[in-house]
Each structure stands twice: as C-alpha cells, then as structure tokens.
C-alpha cells in the first residue's frame, strides 16, 4: 500500500530473566509478542493498555532504541530492521519520539536553543538560518521566541512538553511516536497539547502513534486503535467501531472503567485461577469472566468485520 507509512510485521522483544551467579537465562518476559501494526499517512493511531502491557517497549522498538528479537519494520516500504548505525540516523530523522515525562527528558543544563540546535543541525539547515528555524519551531508550538534563551526549569510542565514536541519537529519528521505525552499534565494543559498535536497533523501532514492509557483521549482524537494486553494486540479497529462495538472482554473492561460515563459495572473479576492452571494461550484468561472450554482453542487475530480484528476464541 502506498499510503502506509509504517508497517510492523511480527515484532518480538523478549527480555531474558537471569538468575544466579552465572546469570543463567531461566526464562523470558515477552514484552512485545508478535505485533503487527500499520500506520497510514496523516493518521493518528492509538495504542492503549494498562501499564506493563508493553506499549512503551513497542514504541522503543519502532525507533530501534531496543534491538528487536524478531520481525520486520518497514518505513515507507523500506526495510529498516537491518540498518547499520549510520543508516539509522536518517531513519530516526523521519521518525521521532516524545516521552511521557517532560521534566526528565530535557537536559537541565542546556538552554532551549542548544537543546533544539542539535536537531536543526542534523536537519542540514545552513548556519545563518538555524536561529531563524528555531524561532519558527517555537512559534509553531505556541511559545514566545525569546524563550530560546531560557533553561528548562523556567518553564511549566505543559510548556516543557511543547519544547519536547518542538525538538521532535526540528528534524522535519514524517512520524512522531508519542509515549503518554500528556498523562503527567493537568487536564487544561493536556487539552492545549492535544489541540497542538491535532493542529500539527493538519498543518504539516504529520502521522502520529499515540500511546496512552486514557480512553477518553483515544476516543477523542485517534483514527485507529490497537488494544494491547501482555505484549499482544488483542483487538484493533477504527476508533468509532471499537467504542460502539467492542468485542474482546478486555476492551469492554477498559471501556466500562472510564469514569463518569459508565453504562454498566465493569466485570473485573480478578482471580479465576493461577496462570499455570489454565490450559490456554490467552493471557487475559485469569481475569476473564467468560472463560470456558472453548478458550483452549488456537488464538489468532481474526478479522470479524472489515478492519476490525479480535484475538478471542469465544467470538
């Protein structure tokens, strides 16, 4: 497909569990387990799930900040899985990341100008035009020009997140991976940042991967949603489909848990049995109310409507 900007095929990232003096590997934590994911141009793709489900690991895998154990990443149709360090530079120019915590992701000893300068240099902007470019960037994210001479501690959380976004934009990326960019911010400031991201999407045709645990946000502005649980995608569909017609019990649990708009009590039964006693590959089984004999069947993502995929044996 021509309009697919990023394509992940069977991405795997296992972390070894090491024990003892000799650091023998006794098992693996399957942080990301066979994830397929597509991002179309100028689309906002949401990844939701509880903490510990592998969302952030996936984000780091996409940027190849972690070496993946298996699978392929295609960017604009080109395989980027095997790029060398040098070649990676140009890939990372086009794919940027904004982290969750704006307090720890800016160097406190650098002025905003020097924080942004690195990116501007990488983007091959000629020397005399660099300062101009930086003020343009700051303007784009809604900060006054003279803030380039200040240090991070002089800004509030929301402003720092704007700076992080400006830094990501300094390389003229085509795709930005946002790893919970607003969860550390107050609601009013969060709304400012969300508006900014929407504006950028429309103005410069950016594509976004938006990682979050806030379903209100996903419903508000993502085009396509992936629901992740224990390293696997359990359901994916266009946003409206997933909100109106959720199939996987986990998705339903998440949707029912949104405060304020609860239609029914979420059926969050926590303990069925211990993991080992359940004869199933489904990671959600210990918490699932609908667990039955059928769950022993093979588990694959299946398409149940056009564009709506579910990993559950009961459906």
């Amino acid at each position: 497909m021509k309009d697919t900007i990023l394509e992940l095929r069977g991405i795997k990232k296992y972390f070894p569990i090491q024990k003892g003096l000799l650091k023998r590997t006794v098992g693996y934590i399957k942080a990301v387990d066979h994830v397929d994911l597509f991002v179309k141009r100028n689309q906002i793709v949401g990844i939701v799930g509880e903490s510990g489900c592998g969302k952030s690991t996936l984000a780091r895998c996409i940027l190849r900040l972690y070496e993946i154990d298996d699978g392929k990443i295609f960017f604009n149709g080109k395989d980027v899985t095997t790029l060398t360090k040098k070649e990676l530079k140009s890939y990372r120019q086009k794919v940027q990341i904004v982290f969750q915590d704006p307090y720890s992701s800016l160097n406190p000893k650098l002025t905003i100008k020097s924080s942004l300068m690195d990116g501007v240099k990488q983007a091959n902007v000629e020397k005399p035009k660099r300062i101009e470019k930086i003020s343009e960037l700051l303007e784009l994210v809604g900060l006054p020009k003279d803030s380039m001479h200040k240090y991070p501690h002089q800004f509030s959380g929301g402003q720092r997140q704007r700076i992080c976004i400006a830094r990501a934009l300094s390389l003229n990326p085509e795709l930005i991976v946002c790893d919970e960019p607003v969860s550390a911010l107050d609601v009013s400031v969060q709304a400012q940042i969300i508006n900014l991201l929407m504006e950028l999407k429309e103005k410069i045709g950016l594509s976004l991967i938006f990682i979050t645990h806030d379903l209100n946000l996903v419903g508000y502005f993502c085009d396509y949603v992936y629901v992740m649980y224990m390293g696997k995608i359990v359901e994916c569909a266009p946003t409206l489909d997933i909100f109106k017609n959720p199939h996987h019990p986990y998705t339903r649990l998440l949707l029912d848990s949104i405060p304020g708009k609860r239609k029914q009590r979420p059926d969050s039964v926590f303990i069925n049995k211990q993991d080992s006693q359940l004869n199933t590959q489904c990671g959600f089984a210990p918490r699932c109310k609908y667990f039955s004999k059928k769950c022993e069947n093979n588990l694959d993502l299946r398409e149940i409507e056009k564009g709506h995929w579910v990993r559950c044996s009961l459906i």
Partner: peptide, 24 residues
C-alpha cells in the same frame, strides 16, 4: 467551565477542544 471543556471524549471528536489558555 474551562475544566469541563478540557476533558476529551468521543462526543467531542472532530472539533478542537477549548482549553483554558496559559497556566496556573
């Protein structure tokens, strides 16, 4: 009103949120 308007939701899709400008 500003706090309430800042909460994103499925119903507000397609339009910009109206956040409170500035910060505390």
């Amino acid at each position: 009103k500003g706090l309430l308007n800042s909460i994103p939701s499925l119903e507000k899709r397609g339009s910009y949120l109206t956040p409170i400008p500035g910060f505390v």
